[in-house]
Amino acid sequence: MTTATVFFALLLYAATLLGVAGLVWRIRDYARTPAPLKIPTTPAPTTTGGVVLRMLREVTLFESLFKANLWIWLFGWMFHVSLALVLARHLRYFTEPVWFWVAWIQPFGLYAGLAMVAGLAGLWARRFLVERIRYISTPSDHLMLALLLGIGASGLSMKFLDHTDIIDLKAFALGLIYFDWQPLPAHPLLYLHLLLVALLIGIFPYSKLLHAPGLFFSPGRNQADNPREKRHLADWAAKLEKAKV
């Protein structure tokens, strides 16, 4: 067992723990915080089924963003859809035998890798070129894009420029899952890739990546428009009411 293997195994465990624990804590916090008033942005669906559809459109098509700005939508959507495909493609390292649909999307996943980097580049360019967006950008906004680009670029380089031994890599990945560690192929690009991925997973719940769970908890989007039909009362407001009478 090389030092690198031990280092990356521990790093990935730690990052996952930090990421998952933080995410669970954040989501519990969101779920427990009351929404005392009905505030969906209208026109809004009047039923729960309608809300599910609205959320689905937001999650898969970025409906609101599409209405707002075609450029941001184009780059943002391209990046997210590609990322989803790329992640799905990576499932081949964690499944044995490889699920059939994972095998099937492999070639698409490859193009998606390129599209993802292009989308990120577009998003980043806006932070320099558009005055309004330059004004609101913080260093972390830039670094987040750099991090994602770094992950994409290091991954693509291993595909197109300098292959690593993916059989051994898969053994390492499966070993992590089954707590039966296998050696990690010695490969600088792979080291870089894994380092950045661990960083991304680790900071997920402590950064603006919280937009992912946040969307599902946004009262403006997830509430049904039925205040006249159904009385809505938060716990603390109900207590206030009790105290009065």
Binding site: A35, I72, R126, K208, G214, F217
Partner: peptide, 23 residues
């Protein structure tokens, strides 16, 4: 922050995408 989910989620979720800047 403990009383209004909207406030908590909205303060966390913004990604500075800029879609609202000209609205």
């Amino acid at each position: 922050l403990g009383k209004y989910r909207s406030l908590k989620v909205y303060l966390d979720a913004c990604v500075h995408c800029g879609a609202c800047t000209d609205k």
